[in-house]
Design a protein around this nucleic acid. Structure first.
Lengths: 363, 363
DNA sequence: ATTAGGATTGACACCGGTGACATTTTCGAA
DNA sequence: TTCGAAAATGTCACCGGTGTCAATCCTAAT
């Protein structure tokens, strides 16, 4: 290090009004303050902030000491401006279930904690014709570091295509392989459906029905396919009239279950594609005068809090949504670290047996 | 306007690679492009962007035309850097109910739609000793334009004090007047409690119980006070042993209801301080072999979706949470407009009568 | 026609960092 | 001891706006 006169001109004097002594918490230290105190150029400080490997250990330590002393934190806006990339992670969603949304958020926030990134919400309405354009303009304006797309936004291929054009990273959460390649969190919904089918078959049910979601959701097909697979393995089958759509909604579940119960041979057990519809089935079953689980067993999917609050509590299939959100964010940030990036992380569902399923009584 | 040579050097040539003609959607126009095309200084463009009144109408129109032609949108990061204030609105929350959180978010997003502001999430844990410090450092770093504090964060006076020191605007959502002055969304929880009490009294119940929330929540007291007031007006009273805490949770509701049912004179009706606890009461009442509403009527508070999905559906008191979120954000943004700012907006709850309440049978 | 004072507009530095590239160190090999 | 390439650090312009204050343009009044 070269220094001639070397007066102790080291106080952070950038702010004119900073007359007093330590500017530790007043008015926020800047990279210039750090540079002056450490007697290096701001560029070198910048290198330290960004973990560049091209800084001598000794210099790095000295700078880090000054940073700690000053309580310096780099200004996200300034960095964003210079890098043309903000420190925002966007959650783009179009999901009716608050439970799902909140858990995904929580998971992402878990992973973002302690980083420089912030989570911004960007709900969208896939039914609107301009929804892709809106997301594009959001990206253009705010230059988010990356996006996280849970279902059903994750299944939007036109959007994925647009995103590949744009200058954003993104991670998708979905139950199937998707056409457009991207990093993703993969959930094995099929295995969940299979677990439900196996559970019911093991209990001794033979006449089993299914209330599924909208055909436009990939998860609808995954869950049903796994379910049918398990039934087949148990030597059973799903008769066509025993499979009804419930639209993933409560009302749809009520209607679907009423339809099933009106059949000549009503089912002994019902597997609903989500808890919402299972809850609807509860209402229809009760209205029709049947008992749960003595007369009819019911299984849901998702393990939303309502499942534990019903009476009897609902047997259901759970996905670790919060962990999935966290994994998605982690995957996204790996780019930032320059680490080798895993493309996939897979999560398996698990069946939670509670009070809504039992062996058939008439057996 | 003065111009001498006036060559048509008007193409946005800032980006070197912008060889072609219209740079309308490529690489994003900047304020410099607008200034050049409009033949004014960038400062004047800045004035137009910020709706400064000191711009001649003619100039303003010309600049606006160029802005439209170029599809120019100002860069939030650059603006934030220069103004030392970002375009983020922070939602600081510590609320166990996903339903509540999502609706508040939705409301805020409704109000933010079409503005330059983005919503960032900042959950916190009030039980941690450093939670105020964390929020402070969030503010220091990200310089949010403002914060929105729903309950119970809104009731955190130390936080409010710290916020007044810091350079942030904020709006609180709460059920009571708070010590620290600030703009706020006020909910009349007391009126909701009164509505519940009146409804039950009108049905003819005399032996009425209450399951309330934690004493640390202001809403607990508000709801109870209103409830007792209504009972008093009906010539009834709430006997001390008929008021039990349920902690605002499902499990707490189960336990509290069990406690009530174990009394020598079990209640004919129960008003639970929220739906969560009401749901717990359902379970306890059923386990004890009573019917709803024939033997026991139940009223909740909040009108979460679960209320409509129970069987029978839950009579409850509803607050327009989404609208409240929207109002909070609107209130916050008024500062930006420089408009005269209302300090308060008040929302009243409304009772939703469904299947869980009926006149007592034994009457 | 001239002029004062408000209405408009512009010049320029600066916000707090980063990128590209130049310069200086450092250190083993010759 | 000297030299050259790699390692470390510095220079300087620029990211895209805004604040401050000076300059210019108008308009009505003199």
């Amino acid at each position: 290090m070269k220094h001639e006169a070397d007066p102790d001109d080291a106080e952070p004097t950038s702010s004119p009004q900073a007359a007093g002594g330590e500017a530790v918490l007043r008015g926020k230290a800047t990279i210039n303050d750090v540079a002056r105190l450490a007697k290096v150029s701001k560029k070198t400080v910048s290198r330290v902030i960004n973990e560049s490997p091209f800084v001598k250990q000794k210099t790095r330590d000295a700078i880090k000491a000054v940073i700690a002393e000053l309580g310096f934190t780099p200004d996200p806006q300034a960095r964003a401006l210079a890098r043309r990339k903000s420190f925002l992670v966007g959650l783009v969603y179009d999901n009716p279930s608050p439970q799902y949304v909140v858990n995904i958020q929580r998971g992402i926030l878990d992973a973002l904690e302690g980083t420089d990134f912030q989570l911004v919400l960007h709900p969208c309405d896939r039914s609107k014709p301009d929804h892709v354009a809106r997301i594009q303009s959001f990206i253009q304006q705010h230059k988010p570091f990356g996006l996280i797309l849970p279902p059903s936004v994750s299944e939007d291929e036109p959007l994925a295509l647009a995103l590949n054009e744009a200058d954003v990273d993104y991670v998708r959460i979905a139950s199937v392989e998707l056409d457009t390649p991207s990093r993703m969190i993969r959930t094995l919904d099929g295995d969940g459906g299979a677990a439900a089918g196996r559970h019911l078959a093991d209990l001794g049910h033979r006449n089993i029905a299914h209330i599924h979601g909208p055909l436009s959701f990939r998860s609808t097909h995954e869950r049903r396919a796994g379910f049918e697979r398990a039934l087949a393995e148990a030597g059973l089958g799903l008769r066509p009239e025993m499979a009804v759509e419930g639209g993933y909604t409560f009302e749809g579940g009520v209607a679907a279950a009423e339809h099933l119960l009106a059949q000549p041979h009503p089912p002994q057990a019902i597997f609903a594609g989500n808890d919402e519809m299972a809850t609807g089935a509860y209402v229809a079953v009760r209205r029709a005068g049947f008992r749960i689980p003595e007369d009819i067993s019911i299984v849901g999917f998702d393990d939303t809090p309502i499942a534990g609050r019903l009476w009897p509590a609902l047997t259901t299939v759970r996905l670790p949504i919060r962990e999935m959100g966290s994994a998605a964010a982690t995957l996204l940030l790996q780019t930032a670290d320059g680490m080798t990036t895993k493309k996939f992380i897979t999560f398996s569902p698990e069946i939670i047996v509670r009070g809504s399923t039992a062996a058939p009584e008439g057996q």
